Simulated assay, not measured.
Amino acid sequence: MFERFTQDAREIVLGAVEEARRLRHPRVGTEHLLLGMLTKPHSGAYAVLHAAGLEHDRVRAEVTKIVGGSGRILTDDDAEALKAIGIDLDAVLANVEKSLGPDSWTTPPPEHEKKGIFRRPQRGTRFGPRARKTLELSLREAIRLDQRRIGSEHILLGLIREGEGLAAQVIVGAGVSLADLRKSTETRLRSAV
């Protein structure tokens, strides 16, 4: 499928991988694809998103607020569940950092992965199920529009069509209608042909 991606679309996917790495998230999600689109100002998806009022720094801040940016594996819901049985997750993490140093409990970026008898070498960045679905839907959107190549706009249409991932939540949370974003994206695609 990736052989059908335009250079812009490939850069967005690579940008998503980089965003996940920078945020120290173990998997690439729809939010990382959205952030990847917002780092490529020459792409059509960027133009549509920017015109809708979405900016990289604000989206990244929102993603960090919701998911976290330090590779913390447990969520706020997990912390609440542990608190209900008498375990203060923040206190545990603070003690780990005090003993082992700052960020010792976080997931290391891929380039720091160690090989060894107890650790498997990382075989590449893992895409979450919604991100994989988004990329699959981008192909379906290109086919639906009778276009041979998958561009950045098709990835955006796939993201909109998937509609349930964190990226869609962030977009709607910013006051942008997914239906309006779809119309703007399709209009841009038609004008580019």
Rank of each mutant, 00 (worst) to 15 (best):
P129T: 00
A131D: 00
A142N: 06
L159F: 09
E153F: 02
L166T: 04
R144C: 03
E153Q: 11
Q147A: 08
T125I: 13
L157D: 13
Q122D: 01
E141R: 02
L166R: 08
R130E: 00
A167D: 09
H154C: 09
L135D: 02
R132G: 04
P121S: 12
T125E: 11
L157M: 13
G165E: 07
L156N: 03
V170G: 12
G151P: 04
R149M: 06
T125Y: 14
I155M: 08
L135P: 00
I143A: 14
R140V: 08
E141Q: 09
R149L: 02
G165H: 08
G124W: 02
I155D: 14
F127K: 01
Q147N: 07
L178E: 14
R140G: 05
G128N: 01
R126C: 03
E164D: 05
L157R: 12
L181I: 12
K133P: 03
A167V: 08
G158S: 08
I143R: 10
G163K: 09
V172R: 15
H154R: 02
V176F: 04
E164Q: 15
L145F: 07
A131Y: 02
E153W: 05
R123C: 03
R144I: 01
R132T: 00
E162H: 10
G128D: 00
L166M: 13
A168M: 12
K133M: 15
A142E: 04
G163D: 11
P129R: 02
E164F: 01
A167M: 14
I143E: 15
G124L: 03
D180T: 09
Q122W: 02
K133C: 03
H154N: 05
R161I: 06
G158D: 12
S138R: 00
G163Q: 10
G124A: 07
H154G: 05
L137I: 00
I171F: 14
I171Q: 05
L135R: 01
I155V: 13
L181H: 10
E141A: 14
A179P: 00
T134L: 06
L157A: 12
V172A: 15
A174N: 07
G173K: 08
E162I: 11
G158W: 05
Q122L: 12
S152H: 06
L157Q: 13
L139H: 04
G175Y: 14
A131C: 00
R144L: 12
Q169Y: 03
L145M: 15
L139S: 01
R140K: 15
P121E: 13
G175E: 09
R132C: 03
I160V: 15
V172E: 15
L135A: 07
A168C: 06
Q147I: 01
I155Y: 14
L139E: 13
L159W: 09
R140N: 14
G175L: 05
G128H: 01
A131I: 00
L159E: 12
Q147T: 08
I155C: 14
L139A: 12
K133L: 15
E162L: 11
R148M: 03
R123A: 13
L159Y: 06
G163Y: 07
L181S: 10
F127N: 04
I150A: 04
V172N: 04
R144M: 12
A174K: 15
L145C: 11
S177R: 08
A179G: 03
